[in-house]
């Protein structure tokens, strides 16, 4: 089942604490932000968890499929070993 980047909006800090205590959602605590109508935090959730949270009164914004999006990053990983020529000095 795909895992999505989600933004979860809750009414108060109690609701945001319950994301971890009661719903066991993986949230990124450093993104916890107060907004006009409560709080929001970023996290990861699959479709079942999103439905569970919505049923519990949270507003959930569903963003990218993180596994699909993350594959793009692999093109930024070095191939081979750029230091091998210099490493000859170590022998």
């Amino acid at each position: 089942m795909p895992n999505y980047h989600v933004t979860i909006h809750g009414a108060d800090r109690e609701a945001m604490a319950d994301l971890v205590r009661a719903h066991h959602v993986r949230v990124y605590g450093q993104t916890l932000t107060e907004e006009d109508t409560g709080y929001r935090v970023s996290g990861l959730a699959d479709e079942d968890t999103i439905k569970q949270l919505q049923g519990a009164g949270y507003r959930v914004e569903q963003h990218e499929d993180v596994d699909e999006a993350a594959q793009d990053s692999l093109r930024h990983v070095g191939q081979g070993n750029r230091f091998l020529n210099q490493a000859g000095d170590l022998r």
Binding site: Q79, N81, F83, L84, A87
Partner: peptide, 20 residues
């Protein structure tokens, strides 16, 4: 430029501790 892979990190540290 790209991120250092696992082997490259190890080589870079060995070089930094090398003869010079």
């Amino acid at each position: 430029m790209t991120y250092l892979n696992v082997d490259e990190v190890e080589t870079a540290i060995a070089l930094a501790a090398g003869p010079p």
